[in-house]
Write a protein that binds this DNA or RNA. Structure first.
Length: 412
RNA sequence: GCAGGGUUACUCAAGCGGUCAACGAGGUCAGACUGUAAAUCUGAUGGCUUAGCCUUCGAAGGUUCGAAUCCUUCACCCUGCA
């Protein structure tokens, strides 16, 4: 079995930061980092074809093991020739482990993913047992399917088997994602569990790699948890850093104000020569903060979700297309933008599509938003190469968050 | 001409003596969305000097402590019978 997965650092910004550029090589192609990885949970980037994703300069796509296990089934995807072949995406692919659903269907059920600390009694979790769809124990997680209520069990071994069948180039260890609403005591307990699971994932993937040695190598990324606590994050970085993962995910409950710090804590403990993926983040200020502190890749549902719900990115902040001001605006979503939507359609037309609930508005807005965030990360990569990262950061963020009417991202 | 039914806010539509500035839906306006239970959710939607006040339920008059709700007349619409 050959390890056709490598990561090479191309350029470090300097000694004062952890920012760097690099190249991840996978069996399905390269990813130039920093890179924004487009999310396609159910083996589709919602409202977009893979060709559109490519045209928006998407380098890789991330799908979800939990969703594909439930439907259409990981075995079916395997029969189809794997995730990429199944969805007609020939570039690099990632899969998430189902760990996020431990939170979204469990502790954080109906609470989304709060980016601020809450107050919960010691030992408590955010959601009460009777209001959740996922139940964690030391061995794994029992889910009630959001599709039909049927019961399913995910263990670290099972997540590896599912992700192995899906066949993505980069897969994630099964972790427990906690909420900032959970108590410190619970975070400690959960972290121990995630670490025990990490070892089991490594063990299982080794078995699977040996069994199917002819298959392309799947890189396994361990996930760093520890919520908003420096001691836990550093401890997690040390523990996971000592294990033979191909890269690392930085996940879980991240307090927005501390995002840069948290990424730094973790990256100061982890081996420098491994790629770091920050899970589920794409707000511009967060991206700058994360890259400055050593994150190499990101993924996030936000660009497409927000697009479907009528918001689009501009250099002056995020705007809602439905607003009356755009009714007779015959300019593009963003002046000068090179995406397909901006090259061919007007705000007035897209507003009409959105208000008429026409599917095409989701497509056009998604194309624009993905293009915008991908380009932001691409521009940041170029600025690191050129040595003007901090100039870009200052002017870009000032314009985005400082412009009138721009909705400032929540600071609480 | 006779008999019956109807007219409520931008639209549709509840209400049938006080708890009604008036349910609900749509529309409109604004906002949120960070490893997707999300093409979803939240708020506002008569006016104002907004913990209160003022003006509204086809029009005018009346009954009543009190009327969108009851009575009278008028206007317009619908359905039968002539």
């Amino acid at each position: 079995m050959t390890t056709d997965f490598t990561f090479k650092i191309n350029k470090k910004l300097g000694d004062e930061t952890l920012a760097r550029t690099g190249t991840i090589v996978t069996p399905h192609g390269k990813v130039q980092t920093p890179a924004f990885i487009v999310v396609g949970t159910q083996a589709t980037v919602k409202a977009m074809t893979p060709e559109m994703v490519k045209a928006a300069h998407g380098q890789a796509v991330l799908a979800n093991a939990y969703h594909l296990y439930l439907r259409p089934g990981h075995k079916l995807v395997e029969k189809a020739g794997g995730l990429g072949k199944f969805m007609h995406w020939d570039g690099p692919t990632f899969t998430d482990s189902g760990g996020f659903q431990v939170l979204s269907l469990g502790s954080g059920y109906k609470k989304v993913l709060p980016m601020q600390s809450g107050e919960v009694a010691p030992g408590e979790t955010a959601a009460k047992p009777n209001e959740r769809h996922a139940f964690v124990d030391d061995d794994g997680v029992t889910f009630k399917s959001h599709l039909d209520g049927s019961e399913h069990r995910f263990t670290p071994e099972h997540s590896m088997q599912v992700q192995h069948a899906l066949g993505a180039d980069i897969i994630f260890a099964f972790d427990e994602l906690t909420s900032l609403m959970d108590s410190y005591e619970y975070q400690v307990e959960s972290l121990e569990r995630t670490h025990a699971w990490a070892r089991r994932c490594l063990h299982e993937i080794e078995k699977l790699r040996k069994k199917d040695h002819a298959r392309p190598y799947q890189a396994l990324f361990g996930v760093i948890q520890g919520a908003q606590y420096e001691d836990l994050r550093r401890q997690a970085g040390q523990f996971m850093g000592a294990l033979p993962f191909d890269g690392y995910g930085i996940g879980g409950a991240i307090e927005k104000d501390k995002l840069g710090e948290i990424v730094r804590w973790v990256n100061e403990e982890l081996p420098q020569d491994k790629p770091k993926h920050l899970l589920g983040i794409s707000e511009p200020d967060d991206i700058f903060a994360a890259i400055e502190n050593g994150a190499d890749t990101f993924d996030c549902v936000s660009p497409t979700r927000v697009a479907r719900n009528g918001a689009f990115y501009t250099y002056e902040g995020r705007r809602n297309i439905s607003t009356a001001a755009y009714r007779e605006d015959f300019g593009p979503l963003l002046e000068g933008c090179e995406c397909y939507a901006c090259q061919n359609y007007t705000r007035a037309y897209i507003q009409h599509l959105y208000k008429a609930k026409e599917l095409l508005s989701a497509t056009l807005m998604s194309i624009h938003n993905e293009h915008f965030i991908i380009k932001l990360v691409d521009d940041i990569r170029a600025s690191i190469e050129a040595g003007n990262f901090f100039e870009l950061k200052e002017t870009w963020l000032d314009r985005y968050y400082g412009s009138p009417k721009a909705p400032r991202s929540k600071k609480t």
